[in-house]
Design a protein around this nucleic acid. Structure first.
Lengths: 141, 141
DNA sequence: TGATACTTGACTATTTTAGTCGGGTTTATA
DNA sequence: TATAAACCCGACTAAAATAGTCAAGTATCA
């Protein structure tokens, strides 16, 4: 059970962006350098974030990215959703009529995994980008 | 972020085992058939469970496995630990003096991932095998 | 008009996962 | 005592996912 780097990087990059998000857009190059993430990889990630309208791009010289919403309104769920970081605990399809592993009934532990998924998603639902930025500046790390 | 089948199967198999755990040991063959898990794969999993003293083996004809502790005392944490299903949210080493990504400080989101890990582990810490068996028999699935 | 920075798709090496395979050893029971 | 059921254990592997890289653009500011 592990988080992929795509999801992790997306959040790291957005926290970085949110911190330096003044009037000027922040370039991926800067984020890349500060966070130690490959520029090419960041581009892929921001392409997805833009499509989901979490960030806006500013093209041209001195361009970069800006948040498209208030940091408070961007939840971890939105970010993970944008980069296809999904919480998957069961193999079985959610709404299929067949049970798990091709059996006619639900597998013994089906409810457990559902419960776990909800537990994790709750956490993501509650955390906003603003929370993360605050925590960081308070602690001055 | 997904659960591997090793962890999932381990829990499924143990719930099955706990349900049919009377005087006689339960054979992996039976579990394999009931749960639709490859026998060879089950053997690998039970080898690990035995090493961590979660189950006991009974060799020979009519042999199989029995729980080594009360179902109440076996938590999901113990099971996942046994089969090396780990919750990993950060790449960075836990107690290394260096920060994340080789930087001198912790990465911006380090605390977040720690928090998430704890959140998930709490869930696993609280659930026992007994809980799972109960839920199933009550609902009569 | 050049430099900077975003845009986009295609490609790929590495790692992990989810097993399989094969040859053991142990022991109850006929 | 033979035999078959069942555990024991290491080695191997196909397929999928991950974590990127590479290349070739396009837009816009100075």
């Amino acid at each position: 059970m592990k988080l992929t780097s795509k999801g992790r990087y997306a959040v790291m990059a957005l926290v970085d962006l949110a911190r330096f998000n003044s009037i000027n857009p922040v370039s991926l190059r800067d984020i890349s350098l500060r966070q130690g993430i490959s520029l090419d990889y960041l581009e892929q990630i921001f392409f997805k974030l833009r499509k989901k309208e979490i960030v806006q791009s500013v093209r041209g010289n001195q361009g970069g990215y800006v948040l498209n919403k208030k940091a408070k309104e961007i939840k971890l769920t939105n970010i993970f959703d944008a980069v296809d970081e999904k919480v998957k605990t069961v193999q079985c399809k959610k709404d299929s009529k067949k049970g798990c592993n091709g059996k006619s009934t639900k597998c013994l532990t089906h409810n457990l995994w559902d419960e776990l998924e909800n537990h994790i998603n709750d956490f993501f639902e509650k955390k906003s980008l603003e929370d993360l930025v605050k925590e960081n500046t308070e602690r001055r790390i």
